[in-house]
């Protein structure tokens, strides 16, 4: 595999340390283990799980912007199931199945009709969001059965927050699937050159639909963690989580045209964005400036990834415009 920008991961590590330093400079409360673990758990656990799912879709050269809406739908399903008395052990597989089904539906529409995935998932976002509103109505749910909150809020022996452990396990699992299994190899092959993959006996349609389904299921998993963290479910949850998720995937070195990306880069980019958000949060930076900063990071990281180096970016923007 060509490592076009081998420095990408190391760059992220250095930026991470740099962001941490800046954060501790701007607020004395930053440098404490439980503060950092607490804020990271809150800011990147849920988004990280969705970003892993999105990575599978981006690697095959597509995109799915309906994932946050699928997660909101998952939240409402959990609330309904909890009210109907289902234990979390029964509700969890059910919600995973339904969210996976939503992803599958996206995949089928995109693959079989050969349509641009942005258009389809844009419509799907509206539909899933509406179904969540239909089921959950406007008000929030809060009285969940015991056990629903465990995954999102418990911590192992008081120190290690469970959501981060869940994210880590999911990342390891994803890393294994992407780099060590036939399915993973097929995902990369479809992303790089679907025609060659097809002529090499890879079931391109099936692989792409599986990628979309995995993304849907990951949103279901993220939903359970979300329930634990916020201990409430509303139909309009995750209304502006899309920007953070896409930024995390792109900043993680996943090529937006497909065919390249790895889990290590993604986790590092999540940590970086989490630290950035935590630093700004502690410095009481207003919400709008935070979205401004993250939007800027998204544009700059894609510009550099596209151009391969900063000088080319300047040359392209400088020379032509």
């Amino acid at each position: 595999m060509i490592r076009r920008l081998p420095g990408w991961e190391t760059t992220l590590v250095v930026l991470l340390v740099f962001a941490g330093a800046v954060a501790s400079f701007t607020s004395p409360f930053y440098l404490s283990f439980d503060q950092i673990s607490y804020s990271l758990q809150q800011s990147i656990a849920v988004v990280g799980l969705i970003a892993l799912g999105l990575m599978a879709v981006v690697v095959i050269g597509e995109i799915d912007i309906s994932l946050p809406a699928i997660m909101a739908l998952g939240n409402i399903l959990f609330a309904q199931l909890s009210q109907a008395g289902f234990s979390v052990w029964l509700a969890f597989p059910l919600v995973l199945f339904v969210c996976g089904l939503c992803g599958l539906l996206n995949g089928v529409l995109v693959v079989l009709l050969g349509l641009p995935s942005l258009a389809i998932t844009l419509g799907a976002m509206g539909v899933y969001r509406a179904i969540a509103l239909l089921l959950g109505g406007q008000q929030g749910f809060a009285d969940f059965l015991p056990g629903y909150f465990w995954l999102g809020s418990a911590s192992i022996s008081g120190i290690v927050p469970v959501p981060l452990v869940v994210l880590l396990i999911a990342a390891l699992l994803f890393g294994f699937v992407m780099h060590w299994t036939v399915l993973g190899r097929a995902l990369f092959a479809c992303g790089l050159n679907a025609r060659t993959a097809f002529l090499s006996g890879i079931r391109v349609y099936a692989v792409k639909i599986v990628a979309f389904t995995i993304a849907g299921a990951m949103s279901g998993l993220a939903s359970l963690v979300y329930i634990g963290q916020f201990q409430s479910a509303r139909a309009d949850n995750a209304s502006d989580m899309l920007l953070f998720t896409v930024t995390a995937v792109v900043l993680g070195g996943v090529d937006i045209f497909g065919g390249r990306g790895n889990v290590v880069g993604l986790i590092l980019s999540l940590l970086l964005l989490g630290t950035l958000e935590n630093g700004m949060g502690l410095a009481n930076v207003s919400g709008s400036v935070q979205t401004l900063a993250i939007g800027t990071v998204l544009i700059v990281s894609v510009l550099i990834a596209q151009a391969g180096s900063w000088s080319t970016v300047m040359k392209r923007l400088g020379v032509n415009s």
Partner: peptide, 11 residues
């Protein structure tokens, strides 16, 4: 900048 339009305008 040759950015895909989705990512650029989302930013």
């Amino acid at each position: 900048g040759r950015l895909p339009s989705v990512v650029a305008t989302l930013g």
